[in-house]
Each structure stands twice: as C-alpha cells, then as structure tokens.
Design a protein around this nucleic acid. Sequence first.
DNA 1: TTGTAGGCGTTATCAG
DNA 2: CTGATAACGCCTACAA
Lengths: 341, 341
Amino acid sequence: MTEKTSHATVDDVAQLAGVSTATVSRCLNSPDRVVAATREKVMAAVRALNYTPNFGARALASKRTGIIGAVVPTLENAVFAHGVDAFERSLPQGKFSLLVASSGYDAAREKHQIEALVARGADGLLLVGFERDPAIYDWLAVRKVPYVLAWSSGDQHPFAGFDNRAGIAAMMRMVLALGHRNIAMISGMTEGNDRARDRLEGARAALEAEGLAFRGVIEVAYGLEGGAAAFGDLMQDRSITAVICGNDVLAAGALRAARRMGLRVPEDVTITGFDDIDIAEITFPELTTVRVPHTRMGEEAARLLQDLIAGKAGGSVLLPTEVVTRGTHAPPVDSVRFGRV
Amino acid sequence: MTEKTSHATVDDVAQLAGVSTATVSRCLNSPDRVVAATREKVMAAVRALNYTPNFGARALASKRTGIIGAVVPTLENAVFAHGVDAFERSLPQGKFSLLVASSGYDAAREKHQIEALVARGADGLLLVGFERDPAIYDWLAVRKVPYVLAWSSGDQHPFAGFDNRAGIAAMMRMVLALGHRNIAMISGMTEGNDRARDRLEGARAALEAEGLAFRGVIEVAYGLEGGAAAFGDLMQDRSITAVICGNDVLAAGALRAARRMGLRVPEDVTITGFDDIDIAEITFPELTTVRVPHTRMGEEAARLLQDLIAGKAGGSVLLPTEVVTRGTHAPPVDSVRFGRV
DNA sequence: TTGTAGGCGTTATCAG
DNA sequence: CTGATAACGCCTACAA
C-alpha cells in the first residue's frame, strides 16, 4: 500500500521475485526458455506489482512495436470499414494492434499518412490499391517496412485482393447476354484510383469485345448524390437501357434517381452495382451486383502481412468475384419504353 | 552514398549540422525555441540524412506516444465507422495517430482491447458508452490514461455523445401524436449496451407517460436478418400499427420483411429507425428516423480528448438529436387493416 | 540561444 | 537455465 505512484519496472519485479531482470524479460517474451518454477515466481510478482512493460522501452530495445498500420481512403465507405474490421479481427489478440489513417482519396495525404504510420513505428502496412508515387514504394523498401496491398491485384507487390477488371467484365457480359446494346456507365473517379479505373476499363473491354461502345460514361465522386446526378444526366439519352455502376453506392443513388424520375427498374432500365455491401439488399428492387469477399480479403491480408513481418515470404492472394443477380436487371424492352407497343 | 544501412540518429544530424543533439531535438519539437539560422542548418541536415526520429526512443524519453486508442463494437456498424472516421480526421495530422480495436460487443474482449491499447502506449482512449466493469475505470485512473466516452451521455465520465432516451422518446411522442396506440419495439441487445437499453427504456417511458404499454418487445442482435425476423414475430399480433426500431439497420430489416409479407409501409404499418445512417435514404420508402450527429460527435470527442491529454479539463459535450420524418410513418388506419371499410 | 550529460525501461549478448 | 551489463535513441533539466 506504500507503493510509488509511478509504475513498476522490470527491476521491481526482478527484485520481488528474487531473479534478474533478464529472467523477467524472458518470462514475458519466451516463457519456454525459463523453468516452470522460476516462471511461477516471476509471474506472481508481475501480478502482485500489476506490472506492465513500458511500451517505449520495449520498442526501443527490441526494434519492434507490434503495431500494424492501415491507410484507407475513408471508413465511410462500407467496403473499407468491413475490410479493416476483418483485418483487425484477424490480428492475434495482444500481439498486434492496428493503427488506421484515412487519406480521403488524396494521394498527397496518403503519402503523409504512410510516413506518419511508419514514424509511429508500424511494423507493417496495409494499403489500398497499387497506384501511388513509386517513391513511396522505394522509401518503404529502404525502411524495410513490409506491406500488403488490398482491393486490387497486380504483379509488382504483395497483395490480397481481386481482379476488378474481370469482376466487372463478367457483369458486363451478363448484361450483354440479356440483350442490352445501349449501355452507359457511372464510374468512380479514376484519377489515382486503380480500382475505379480497372472497373471502367474492364467494362469497356467487355463491351468492345462485342463491337460496341459506351453510350455514355460519367465519373463522379463516391456518394449517393453523385450516382443520382450522373444517372439523371445519362438518361437524357433515352435510348440507354442499362447503366453499369462502379460501386453499390453509386448504383443506389442511380436507383433512387430512377424512382424519382418515374423510371421503373428493371422494366425501364437495368442498373448494376459492384461490391455487394449491405445496402445491395436494402434497395428496392434489391441490387444486382458483383460480390467481393471483403471479409475474407481482410483476413488474408492480415495473414499475409504477418508472414511478411515474420520474414516468411508469402505469396499474394487473388480472391474470386461473382455476379449476384437480384432485382435490378432485366432484358431491354425498347418497344415498351418508347410507347410503341 | 557510403552511408550505413541503418538509420540516421540525432547524433548524425547534430554532427552534420554542427550543433548539439539537444538543438536538433528542439528543432523538431519546439522549433520556436531555436534561431532561424540554426534551424535551417539542422533541417537541411535532417533532409540530407533522411532522418526520422526513432519512435521507441522518443516514447521512452518523452513518456508520450502520440497514439490514441479507440475501442468500438465493430466497424461493420456504419455508425461506428463514421464516428471513428470523423474522429481520426479531426486528429492533428502527424501529431496523433489512431489505434483501433473492435470488441464485437463483448465486454471481456473490450477489456482486453483496452488493456492492449494502453500497453501499446495509447496517450488517451475513445470508448463507446458508459456501461463497463468499474474496475476498468479504476485501472484507467491509476494508469492516468484520459478517455472520452461517445454515443451516449451520463455524468460519471467525460463524454461527447447524445441522449438516447430523449432521442427515442421524441420519436415515440411523434408516433403517438399520429394516433398509434398499439405499438411494438424491436430493440438491439440491451445486455452490456447502454445505448440499446436507453433507447428501449426511453421509448417505454414515453409510452407509459400516455398510460400505454408495448404490445410487444423483441431484442435481437444487430443486423438486417434480426430486424426482419423480429418483425415477422411481432406481426403475429395484427393489431400492432407501429414498430419502433432501436436502429436503422433493424428498421431496414423490418421494412424488407414487411414488403415480403405483403404489408404496405406506411399504410399498413409504421416503422421507425434510429441513427439516420446512409441506408435511411436508400430504403423504400425512405426511413423516418432519429438523426444523430455522428460526424460532429467524432469531431467533438477528438477535441475533448486532446484537451484531456493536454491536461486541460474539458467539459463533456451533449449533442442534440432530431426526428427526421421521411416515408415510413403515417397515422394508423385500423379500419382498412381489418377490412372493415 | 545553445551545449552537456544523465536517465528513461527493455532487450539481448555473452558468460557462467 | 540464469545473471551481469551494454546498448537502444531521444529528451530535458541544468548550466553556460
């Protein structure tokens, strides 16, 4: 009861347990290298003193922090919130903690965040997508900070992701198979965003494979409003029968705009999304979209990054995507749309 | 080009700049305490050597890490994802970083997470709600770790939150004013969750103030499915004309169930939510709900916590809630419902 | 305004 | 298996 107000240190524990500080340290870090009997004594002292190792000292001496950093555009996007959540849950309790930062889809800000996380001693990093200033990759290499890229795939860096091009191409082929020929797309902003760009180009490629071209393409910032506004603009051209959206939120916005414009979905126009987040099941009709295994991706990324941190070279993980057919797609019915029944 | 592979230290910088390590340290931490001329030299050396302070050493010597911890139930709940995102964005760039952990609505796990974050050197904590083992608060006090509670309000601890009871009571009064008398509620799990409990009790209190009682109350785990299932059960009693939901996701689930059951909303039944997250504008009809300033709350929590960390005793912040009337509410029309037109 | 020097609490090497 | 002891890199009185 006459303890100091400051915290107990290894020395206190060592003294109380009647051993050296080295032994205390071993008990905490590699218990198997200590005989059970001494270990008991030490742990008892640890409990008695309510001892907790000092983080700074530990980091300084061991050159490791047990902190993993993640930089995502924003947690407001459910895709990242879910992925980060799964990633964090997959980290061994007590062994690693997750430092998160958001870039707001801003490349310069992302760079700062990455530097900040490394400065905070991050042992490894989770980043979104491949596209960024090469200097960042160089810097990470010099600093020897392992990293895993997610929500995308490529061959320059370790990743746990999926093929955005292939995913949306499958959706486009489904729409084409339905008979649609006048197709438009609402894409997320592609600048500095390889996910958005790959989706746009993947869709375009699938379209061109049929000798067709988009009747319209609009890039908008992430959000319900953007999707709604773009849909309104696109529909100036009433020959369009299908609108492919770069993500579910854009699609939900388009859907709402359609309803307000008095257009029926899918009778008058087909709308498709990408990601298959929760809202895809809440819209009416429910959204036809491309499912991405966000949770699984977060888990795989965590596993992969831990391997890299441990020095085991782990290969990348390419996850599958899948077209989920719900209620917002149907064959085009031009005759009805034009009142030429 | 003949540099060591290891990183530059203060000593290297001091030497190159021709000053002492103390001056280098000052340049980095309190630049105003150094003459511009020397500062220039030092910063030049810093850049030349690509110097970054060692995190562990800095933490050890200064007893501060610049890391703030946050423990939330899950980022899959948009409410927490948005709040955490706003909180993180409000932290001064480079000065603080955010360590996040999720408890999965599990009290024991939350306790571990809190301990883990403190062990990782968190300078302060953001926690959700008031209800938790008092021992945790004691421990935090002993460790002198400042914290801010959010998404709730009370008078025992500093918080940036709102009054769940008052928020839902206002909604209940609105529903009562519409003429509803046979009302039921779908609540989130109340055990260990003061937000859910306050909402349930706030609604009950408002109901009883009118001399009425719930026609049914079901507690379900967070999720669309839970809301849908509960709605189905509740509607066994066809006299019920309004279902108050503890949050928007539950309400969205109820709405979907209603549609599948062939019930019209709001003609046949009124459904209300709480939180006003994005999905409230995506459902059809759009959801009548209680708006909570999640973003503002995150910002205020960040401000408050920084004050506490800086030693300035900041008062709590009680944010207002507001009933948002959209499309899922209407007066009861019993005669129609019972076919007694 | 700047320099000196001691200490922060652990880990890890190296004997014993 | 355990004990000394030397780093680890920075901050911060204190002194000049």
